[in-house]
Amino acid sequence: MMDEMDMEEGGVVKKFMFVNRKAPHGTIYALEGLEVVLISAAFDQDVSLAFCDDGVYELKKGQDTKGIGVKNFSPTYRALEGYDIEKLYVEKESLEARGLTEDDLLVDVQVLSSAELGALMDEQDVVISF
């Protein structure tokens, strides 16, 4: 709580984009990325999330991990709104290559073309990749 207040007094708000490019359960990247995003919410920065390549699978509806004995963290993406993280972008080309549409995703997102996502990435102060 103290740290949050200190940050506010500092008043520096930067644009952070977290780029998610890995499928959820085969490696630890997706979960680690999500935890960093949740922690970043405590610092009142301008945070956005981009999902491209296999990262789009992180948002796939209907994940059931009981059979592989790992935590199903996909419901946590729905908690992001409560953390005031509302800018979620998904690359259209990555969705299409995987036979997915916006309806397959478990949160509301903005679907962007590769070029649009690239342009948005270019506007950031900090880009962090998972």
């Binding site: 709580m1 919410a41 963290f73 419901p75 729905r78 908690a79 953390y83």
Partner: peptide, 26 residues
């Protein structure tokens, strides 16, 4: 619902929404 324990700020806000503002404060 979300598979995480909420941060204090998020908890406060969510409680306020569900149980009323008199309870949704630190």
């Amino acid at each position: 619902d979300y598979q995480i324990a909420p941060a204090v700020r998020v908890l406060t806000k969510a409680i306020g929404k569900k149980l009323g503002p008199e309870k949704g404060n630190s």
